[in-house]
């Protein structure tokens, strides 16, 4: 298999990898870069568990050819927390009980993160639409929706305090 060099920005840092051009971004992240927070639920773009942000847009990493990310920004779940801090959105997920088995959670969080970046004050309908490509079998989505709205509210408060 032919490998090629790919330069891209991964979670804010420049990265160069040599990888099979025909492989998927998902396999690059999980298999080669050891970023196991991106989950694989179907490998066919049908569940959203492997959602990552490509230039700030949620995409299914399993459907993106690795070579396509040349020059682009890729953001995975690992970017949102440090060893002792988590993103307020993640706090809201925990607080509202939006995490059960947790397998859909990284993808779900990233879909919600992208939504809030583009639309800081979404309606419940917009939240549902934004997470409609992320299947969750545990929660019934209600707690996820509440978590995203809770995070939006926190953001509101934070910005009004500024």
């Amino acid at each position: 298999m032919k490998k090629q060099a790919i330069n891209f920005e991964l979670n804010g840092e420049p990265v160069e990898v040599f990888t099979e051009a025909s492989g998927s971004l998902l396999h690059l992240l999980r298999g080669q870069l050891g970023l196991l927070g991106t989950k694989e639920g179907c490998g066919a773009g049908e569940c959203g568990a492997c959602t990552v942000l490509l230039d700030n847009q949620p995409v299914n990493a399993c459907l993106v050819p690795a070579a396509k990310i040349e020059g682009k920004q890729v953001q995975t779940i690992e970017s949102l927390s440090t060893s002792n801090t988590v993103h307020p959105l993640q706090e809201s997920f925990v607080k509202k009980g939006a995490v059960q088995c947790g397998f859909c959670t990284p993808g779900m969080v990233l879909s919600a993160y992208a939504l809030l970046k583009a639309n800081p004050d979404p309606t419940p309908g917009e939240v549902k639409e934004a997470i409609s490509g992320n299947l969750c079998r545990c929660s019934g989505y209600k707690q996820v929706e509440e978590a995203v709205l809770d995070a939006a509210e926190k953001k509101d408060q934070a910005s009004s305090e500024d």
């Binding site: 773009g45 959203g48 959602t51 490509l54 847009q57 949620p58 995409v59 299914n60 459907l63 993106v64 879909s111 639409e129 934004a130 409609s132 490509g133 992320n134």
Partner: peptide, 9 residues
């Protein structure tokens, strides 16, 4: 079409 993720790409 599909899902937000699919529509983005």
């Amino acid at each position: 079409i599909g899902s937000p993720q699919v529509r983005n790409i």
